[in-house]
Design a protein around this nucleic acid. Structure first.
Lengths: 231, 231
DNA sequence: CCGAAACTGTCACCGTCGTTACAATCGGCT
DNA sequence: AGCCGATTGTAACGACGGTGACAGTTTCGG
């Protein structure tokens, strides 16, 4: 890895939600033990049950993550951006990969093999806590998503999901969500028509502004009220 | 803890899905560092954001686990039986508890405080792998549940959920699921009426047998076909 | 600069699920 | 044995989302 790549990767990891609270030392070890990988649009960063175990941390780019549902279908579970961790160490989780991630933008990753994780672990045991930590974070969002889909009607669900995206991203223009309505529908089990109907509704109420392939949140508080079924 | 309790707890942990593949030594440490707790019907084994961090392993009994959804609602997420792990070590997961668990039968737990986990970790680092492991297991089932609810229509969803219960339990009479139709509906976001309709349908097709507060699976393969949308 | 591809806005029809309500049945408790 | 609460079977009606289809708009690449 080039020296400038190294510092770039370091910054990306250092600011990721995952490693907040862990020492610089751990981050440095991750950078030096990891391998930088670039993938183009359409390539799989990982596949269920594939033979490349380990973790990958997204440095730049964007991916869609799919989960296998009964009947050989795949459902879009979420968007994966810089700072997210995907994949898992088979050895420490005991099973095939959960999800499939496909690049929708050219992306770069820091790939950490199981062996690399072992080497890091022998020097900096923090890594195990960190791994348990992101497993929890993933579990948290998965449970929340399940709870949303189960308990909320489509209208509330859409509002809640928009807010989840909003909270998930920490960039400057977090108010603008770049997702097509088609994709939104696929992610929460609704048709584009239904999505469109409710979004138009929200726009008329001044909560959001619709664009081509994007949605701008203009009244986060108002959306919260809807998600909370107050309105 | 009494000596006979100790061996009882040891057996429960030793046979739990969680600790399969880990050495007896780790199990022994867990038993000796843990505290045995008994709770009656209606008592909370844990609460979101409560002040008793750590893990609890269910030794005997049955609990319902709830997850907070937007709008101060709680949705029934699943049933928790012997061998399951609930709670989490705040320190290593970085956030409030995810779920609330309420006893529906008198239950016993092995409670492991954060300090106990630390002590175990210093001697047997396996514990961290084990913790990441059950976080993964929980994540897996949560993601799967979300995928089911998103992609399956009610009929398929009910079949898939029945199968999930069936797979989850490893006891002898796993074919008999002891849940009321009311509860089933609550767990997957459907009304009792809808549940009843589809279940009656399944019964007529010879896939299940309905009882009072229980459901017996008589044709697992047939249910799989429905869940997979083949039928 | 233009054409193809992707995305959004909208329609009518139909099926399914939620709502509300009531009766019948089962199980445990006294 | 007998009662009461919990659970199940069922009905009519209305609302809402899915289906399939089409036109208009924006984006991007050649």
């Amino acid at each position: 890895m080039q020296a400038d790549d190294q510092s770039l990767v370091f910054e990306a990891l250092r600011h990721s939600a995952w490693l907040q609270g862990y020492p610089d030392d751990l981050v440095h070890r991750l950078v030096s033990e990891g391998r930088l990988v670039r993938l183009n649009v359409g390539e799989w960063a990982q596949a269920e049950g594939d033979d490349r175990p380990g973790l990958s941390v997204v440095i730049s780019g964007l991916l869609h993550s799919y989960c296998a549902a009964p009947g050989d279908r795949e459902v879009l579970i979420g968007l994966v951006g810089p700072g997210s961790v995907i994949g898992h160490a088979t050895r420490y989780s005991g099973g095939p990969r959960l999800v499939t991630a496909v690049c929708v933008e050219p992306s770069t990753f820091l790939e950490l093999s199981e062996e690399a994780l072992d080497r890091i672990g022998s020097q900096a045991p923090h890594i195990w806590q960190a791994m348990a930590g992101f497993a929890y974070a993933h579990m948290r969002s998965a449970v929340r998503m399940a709870a949303e889909v189960i308990s909320l009607r489509p209208r509330e669900r859409i509002a809640a999901r928009l807010l989840a995206f909003h909270d998930h991203v920490q960039s400057a223009d977090r108010h603008v969500i770049k997702v097509s309505q088609e994709l939104l529908g696929e992610m929460m089990g609704l048709t584009r028509k239904t999505i469109n109907q409710h979004l138009s509704n929200f726009e008329a109420a001044g909560l959001i502004r619709l664009g081509y392939g994007k949605i701008e949140l203009t009244d986060v508080g108002g959306l919260k009220l809807i998600a909370d079924r107050v309105v």
